[in-house]
Nucleic acid binder design. Sequence first.
DNA 1: TTTATAATTGCAATCGATTGCCTAAAGTAT
DNA 2: ATACTTTAGGCAATCGATTGCAATTATAAA
Lengths: 341, 341
Amino acid sequence: MKSQKRTTIYDIAQKLNLAASSVSRALSNSDKINAETKALILKTAAEMNYQQNAMASNLRKGSNPTIGVVVPRINQYFFSNIIAGLEEVTFKKGYNLVICQSNELHAREVAGVNALVNQNVSGIVISIAAEQGSSDHLQQVLDRNIQLIQFDRVLEDLETFKVVNDNHKASYEAVKHLIEQGYRRIALLEGPQELPIFRERKEGYLAALKDHGFPILEELMYTNAWTKELGAIATAKLLEMASPPDAIFASTSDFAALGVLEAATAKGIRIPEELGICGYSNEPFTEITSPSITTIDQFSIEMGKTIGDLHFQELDNSGAVIKKTVNIKPKLIVRKSSQRI
Amino acid sequence: MKSQKRTTIYDIAQKLNLAASSVSRALSNSDKINAETKALILKTAAEMNYQQNAMASNLRKGSNPTIGVVVPRINQYFFSNIIAGLEEVTFKKGYNLVICQSNELHAREVAGVNALVNQNVSGIVISIAAEQGSSDHLQQVLDRNIQLIQFDRVLEDLETFKVVNDNHKASYEAVKHLIEQGYRRIALLEGPQELPIFRERKEGYLAALKDHGFPILEELMYTNAWTKELGAIATAKLLEMASPPDAIFASTSDFAALGVLEAATAKGIRIPEELGICGYSNEPFTEITSPSITTIDQFSIEMGKTIGDLHFQELDNSGAVIKKTVNIKPKLIVRKSSQRI
DNA sequence: TTTATAATTGCAATCGATTGCCTAAAGTAT
DNA sequence: ATACTTTAGGCAATCGATTGCAATTATAAA
């Protein structure tokens, strides 16, 4: 029940017979104040258990040292890693992180972004929801001169920094690897083509086939299989074909790859001998399945850090920078599920 | 370069020849304003692209509809699930989440908590860092009448809501299960005993052994093995004993259990026939190892939701509530690594 | 000693929204 | 028609920190 009022700079000023402005200067380490006075104020502030009221400060300063993050799901390995990496950078700068999850819903994404705008955050970091809609909410962010950084799932048309993986290249490498391992009929599990990342992965797949003189077969491409369950269903369908694939590249996710692995194993198909598998994301579990799953590491923590660096770099150069796209090079992690040489 | 100033309620008031207070009332849906006027204001606000300045509002109201979260690591399955569950609840209430990670360091935990106090958040949700120190920072939270909810790793002495798993019971059940499966020399990988959760798990283990008339053997208890690597090392040591254990309960984490599985498999030991394994946390990967790993589900998303519910419940009853401990019942998930009957 | 300059400190406005209090107008009852 | 109650809306203080400008004091230069 001790609802002691918060100590304010006025309380400190009164106690020391000074003006609040002097207290403020002392606390913000200004040089417009005598060293002794400053020391005294600091000491008294500590004694009185002073904690700055960030709202008052931010209101007056017209800025808020906070970065807002909007991701589809907080508890997805890739996203939580992005956040962890980003937090690493922001913490060092004394910035806070406010997090929203869109749950892949456009309406929630809009609500989240608006809440962040209300808080006058200094930047918003976003990976857009699978359910897409108007991009007015993001345009508004730009209009209000709030830094906007998109990552992974980006809207190309918006002129913002973008931090993405080179999905095309990663996908290309994966398929090339499968080809080199002697697989000849390589199927693709593809994600929703509205999202550029999935389009790029498909293009990488196609390019690799083409460059190696392989035919492009529509029947080997399976749309929207990005969960374990859908991966398994897709696999069942693919393996029932007259001439089934001898490798499946689950470009959607490792979860889909896991579905492939389980469905194929259940059918008694030997991996990697009879069927090669490659996933995407390097989820921790890919290392410990049997066989372990070949996949692509996206360097998510690195990406998070890069996003943070970009934000502060842009802040310093105050808008004069060209909004560029940073490509993080993903890396093919070859494991047992695709090694038969 | 269009750095258009933000629209404020004054801009709206001026345009409509009204007082700012009326605009404020309209926007906050007060009943002290005429319905038509309200509609007009709302319409104009939308046209002028008005977004409330949350800082000004929060400063004036002396409160901030935000909950701060401090966890050891954002990108750990358990914690990111807690956050996801919590976010579910807070979003519905229009509250924001500010996230800090302590990285298991006390200093960072203190810094995070202080930042949250500065922001005058309405509540702080915390799971304390492994590296412990003074609890002054948390005491200060209480002194300032900010709701404090501890979860999972809690400081018993602080009088706050606590949301925890019944670690004792879960541990007891796990060991009971191993005994029922015919295992006779059950080893324990235990976590840092400064943290109550690990003490409780050990006590559950001891109680189960005792209740079933098993001897308590110091040599079967292995301290601080809570990563995959340490789990593997511990296993190697344990299996070298003259009479090695026939089951290992990795009470620290599933990662440790995975280490056990790998180390044992590498030695050619058959699981579950020759060695039973049980982990803790129901990490997604436990389902897909071979064999799959018996573990304990902590219902982390549920926990997150419960934390949120508690916060708002306490807010409504404004402090009159007794700060109680909520026990989430964990559940033993029996899988292949411990089933030999 | 006088004047110029620099170093400190105080004053008061400001950020934008909220809210208690007050007034005017409109509505209701007798 | 008079008195009383509602209703609507305005005024101005307030939340706590910051900051431009003014005032004061100390220091240096002449």
